[in-house]
Structure formats: C-alpha cells, structure tokens
C-alpha cells in the first residue's frame, strides 16, 4: 500500500514485469484510453509506469481519484493482427491502466 499525493491509500500494483496479461473486452461509453484493436489480446507486462489520475474520469471534470496503476504491455504483432505482413520478431508496446487488465491469456489469443 502506498499513499497518493492527495493522501489516499491505494492498493499496490497487481501485476509484475514479465507477467502474462490480457486486455479486457469491453465497450463502455465515453472517453476511454484503451483502443479497440488491443482488446482481448494477450501480452506481457513490460514495465510498471506509476499511478496516474484516471483520464477516463478526468475527461468529465471529475477528480479521477484514486489514481490508477499504469503499465506498458508488450505484444507480438502477429498476435494482434491476423494478417500482419512483417516478420514475427515485430512487437508493439502500449500503455494500459490496471482496470483494463486481467491475468492470463485473452479471449482472442
């Protein structure tokens, strides 16, 4: 547990570097920072980036607290796109908030 600048206590990050995660498939309305192309895909945590004010709430004038843990998740391009035309060594890193992650492989592996 760690205290945020606003004094709130927030839980420690759930995921560690190298852990297999997948992106939740959901389509809530409004401002979201998780693009559709990555939903349901499986990757590994590249690093933990820190805790940030939740932009999905701040977009509507809310405080966006408690802060959300942000990770960079690395994917093989061939796992994202069925028709990826580059070599298998290619990868994509994207920043994902913890509330969009789940442990293990995704719905569309």
């Amino acid at each position: 547990m760690s205290a945020t600048p606003s004094g709130e206590i927030m839980p420690a990050p759930v995921y560690g570097t190298g852990e297999t995660v997948s992106i939740i498939v959901a389509f809530p309305p409004g401002h979201r920072r998780t693009p559709n192309y990555i939903k349901g895909k499986t990757g590994v945590i590249e690093r933990y980036c820190g805790a940030f004010i939740n932009p999905e709430e701040r977009a509507y004038g809310l405080a966006g607290l408690p802060k959300r843990h942000l990770y960079r998740v690395r994917f093989n391009q061939t796992d994202i796109w069925d028709e990826y035309d580059g070599p298998v060594v290619d990868t994509l890193d994207i920043e994902i908030y913890e509330h969009w992650l789940r442990s293990g492989t995704g719905e569309t592996a």
Partner: peptide, 28 residues
C-alpha cells in the same frame, strides 16, 4: 498494423531480422 510499409513510404527500410517495435503513446 503495417509499420514497415509506412516507414518504407518515408524512405526507411528496416531489415527483416531487426525487430520493429511500435509504441502506442496512448496514455501518460
């Protein structure tokens, strides 16, 4: 989804044994 094609259009050709790593700067 086709970073190598896009780079090629800018005159940049990356060898097949080099990893092209795209970073989606979507958050903080």
């Amino acid at each position: 989804n086709e970073p190598r094609s896009v780079m090629r259009e800018f005159g940049t050709i990356i060898a097949d044994n080099v990893t092209v790593r795209v970073h989606d700067s979507n958050a903080d």
